[in-house]
Computed example of a mutant assay.
Amino acid sequence: MKRLLLIGVLGLALGGCATPKYNYQAVSQNISKPAIGSVNEAYVGDKMLTQGVFMEREAYYVPEAKKKFLLNIPKGYYLKTGEDQKGSYYQPVNAIPDGAAFVGVQSVLITRDNSFCFVDVYFNKVCNFKNIGEKRKISVANDNSFQQTLIYSGKVGSKINVGYREFSSNLARPAFNNDVEYDLNESKTIGYKGALLEVIDANNQSITYKVLRNFNKVD
């Protein structure tokens, strides 16, 4: 009775039953960017260089929030959990950016025709949206993740400031953070922990640089 009342209040169309699947396995991968030899621009606070181990996850991306009756679908990425003949199943929470969850929903189902459906705790499948997003692959941190970054912190006179940060499981490791100052009058090439960059231009707002070498070789 409560199920029918909820569906009636939200104005949802009942579309049969579905059982969420959890047969998807994410893939661990090494990431190194930007590419060696590339010329890039970064603003104060931006990452100049990134290298680490992440999990590559399939996800469904909703670029704009949607609303119909009392139902709100937050924008963001919904991470895949599995699939079957009906389509692909995703977590009922937009993992990125803010973690908004649906109450009473145990899974999101994207059908073969790109309908956005909810699977409730009673395995009812209700679909009222279609073609509101797209499937993507994204890199996310997990318990085994490790990341090294260089961050541009601005320029004073002839000197630029660069921050080095290490992250483990998406959390900063304070003991491995450092801020370094480089005098461009001495050299246009700067390096830290094996990484090597050629500074083409820099001011207190941005820096243009060429990547000569990353922190270490990615297998």
Rank of each mutant, 00 (worst) to 15 (best):
V44H: 06
E56N: 12
N72K: 13
K75R: 09
N203Q: 02
D201F: 15
R3K: 13
E56G: 03
Q205V: 10
Y43E: 12
E181V: 11
K47P: 01
N185W: 05
Y24S: 14
V121Q: 13
P20T: 10
N30D: 12
R3I: 14
A141N: 13
S107P: 01
Q91T: 03
L70D: 11
D219W: 00
K75Y: 06
E56Y: 00
A95C: 02
Q85H: 13
D143C: 01
N177R: 13
A42T: 07
K21Q: 13
V199Y: 02
V211Y: 07
D201W: 03
G87P: 01
Y89K: 05
N185S: 11
Y61E: 09
I96W: 15
V105Q: 02
G15M: 12
L109M: 05
E186V: 14
I7L: 10
A195C: 02
T189S: 15
T19F: 04
D183Y: 13
N124I: 04
L79V: 13
V211F: 06
A101K: 14
E64I: 14
V27M: 11
V103T: 13
K193C: 04
N128D: 12
S158Q: 13
S145Q: 02
F102W: 00
D113Q: 12
E134R: 15
N203W: 01
P174M: 11
D46W: 12
V218P: 03
R165S: 04
E198D: 12
Q91R: 15
D201H: 04
F54I: 04
P92R: 00
N178G: 03
S139F: 12
A175M: 10
K67C: 03
A172F: 11
T208S: 12
V44Q: 06
K68S: 11
